[in-house]
Write a protein that binds this DNA or RNA. Structure first.
Lengths: 302, 302
DNA sequence: CTGAAAGCGCTTACAG
DNA sequence: CTGAAAGCGCTTACAG
């Protein structure tokens, strides 16, 4: 049984790659890590996975990885985006690739095409004839939120539909947060006929809130999610969504890191395409304003 | 920046613990690993996580961990149960704790009380007055499947309800597998008023199949899941289920491993309690046989 | 081509 | 109490 530690001492390094991740009970992160882990293992590296608890200090985890002489680091922690402390710790770090922007640290970023995600959802809703549309976004501190929102809003506008600020409601990526946000959205405009949730988990909260108000999906209101989790096709109704290539993204990040470790120059940014998945949670808007019958709200002007 | 490799060479070991896991895009495994990882990090160890692809050889992963001189190994791979090749590789291995039985290898096993899970579900359904009950199980090659089934069947029997073999349908832990299994179950007995799925993901498949047949939940048929995933309360209807303490289980496994590493003697088996969570997918059975009324209406069967 | 020696960066036991 | 030396298990450069 050879001693990889001794070999590593001689080589000044070890056949390991560090993965700095946020809590991977978040299925998206778990799948990123999985894809990366597989990819890295396929080339003879072990993955040292360190997940920093929410609110914890990633720099401690990073130092640990350095002490273990990892050859490179994969940053799979969206929370790094808003963590400015990291920048310095990364200055003289080993090769690295991140799944999100890291404040102040030059690092290659790999992700999927979030802007296009918003565009695809907008096109689908426009093609169905929706005009009163709302959206439940993730936290505004994340770029992905803004990118998806921008693609969505811009494409709607070019289709003649304006997304008013009041129908863009921020949530926190959780089902519960989205449920509450949806109630706020419906308080603002009870006549909305379509809601885009920026994640499938949030779409679950949207569906729940609509059910709580007796609004039928997709008859009275369409719902679009994002991610295409494996459960998406088994919801009631099966969820129309956008597939995000989690494992592929993780694998690509790993491949780029390995190339960087080998001394190759890698591009600063890589975007993977997304794919629209039509299921049963979207349909044409109701012919007449749905709540004008059951409530006292005025009929809709077209 | 100290060199942990050099220190490890001197100490003949490294401050790392290996985690051998199956594909952790399985959220249960991800949460086990997460709990363990946190626990282990809290005591100054890094976790080397190696997930072996389905059908892959865990012995390769294990050798790798040994070469890296991990102080102990956490086995979080249910697939090990049916992998007899492992036994030998584990003979002279470092301290270890597993979340499932490993054929032929003496190892401490940590888990939750699967038998009690079945008992709790049975008691709930009995208390509601159900008598025609079916169940969708996970693969029979896993002990957890048999334990849950045994607790369920035994408790039903003591309540005067017999679970015929024909209404125990095996699936593969996936939503799709459970959906197909549920159709088979309903073909056997269309009058069933309650279905216990051995995982929440499978409960999703059960709900889908029932929806496809126009059977209303919980009015016509009650559904109980197992796991209490975070989505469970946001399904339509919110799912009655049994909470399995994933993170706690992972953490306990890690704690035991660390104690074993320190030379303490640890028990061979630890069971964590589960908790029944009542939501809206269960109710009293319909007063009259439901399909005798609705049999004239076309039931959709995809 | 083969084999002995040096050295990677630590810790530890021992000499001063 | 302090400081130099030995040694962990490898790889590599060098001597034979």
């Amino acid at each position: 049984m050879p001693n990889a530690l001794a070999r590593g001492l001689v080589h000044q390094t070890s056949p390991t790659v560090g993965i700095l991740s946020d809590d991977f009970s978040d299925v998206a992160i778990a799948r990123f890590v999985l894809g990366a882990q597989r990819s890295v293992a396929g080339e003879g590296f072990a993955a040292l996975v360190v997940s920093t608890p929410a609110g914890g200090d990633h720099t401690v985890s990073l130092r640990w990885l350095h002490e273990l002489r990892v050859r490179g680091v994969l940053l799979m922690a969206p929370s790094l985006e808003s963590d400015a402390r990291l920048a310095e710790a990364f200055r003289d770090s080993v090769p690295r690739v991140s799944l999100s922007q890291v404040a102040g640290a030059r690092t290659t970023v790999v992700g999927s095409d979030h802007r296009m995600t918003g565009v695809l959802v907008a096109e689908h809703l426009l093609s169905l004839g929706h005009e009163r549309i709302g959206t439940i976004t993730g936290g505004r501190d994340r770029r992905v939120t803004l990118s998806r929102l921008k693609g969505f809003r811009d494409r709607l506008r070019s289709g003649g539909v304006t997304l008013e600020p009041a129908v863009v409601v921020e949530a926190d990526w959780t089902s519960e947060g989205a449920r509450a946000a949806t109630h706020r959205l419906l308080d603002v405009d009870p006549e909305i006929t379509a809601i885009f949730a920026q994640s499938d988990l949030m779409a679950l909260g949207v569906l729940r809130a609509l059910a709580e108000r007796g609004i039928s999906v997709p008859r009275d209101c369409s719902v679009v999610g994002c991610d295409d989790l494996r459960i998406a096709g088994f919801l009631t109704p099966p969820l129309t969504t956008v597939r995000v290539p989690f494992e592929e993204t993780g694998a690509l990040a790993a491949q780029l890191l390995l190339r960087s470790i080998r001394g190759e120059t890698i591009s600063a940014r890589e975007l993977l395409p997304v794919r629209f998945i039509v299921r049963a949670s979207t349909a044409r808007p109701p012919p007449h304003s749905r709540r004008s019958v059951s409530s006292s709200s005025p009929a809709r002007h077209v």
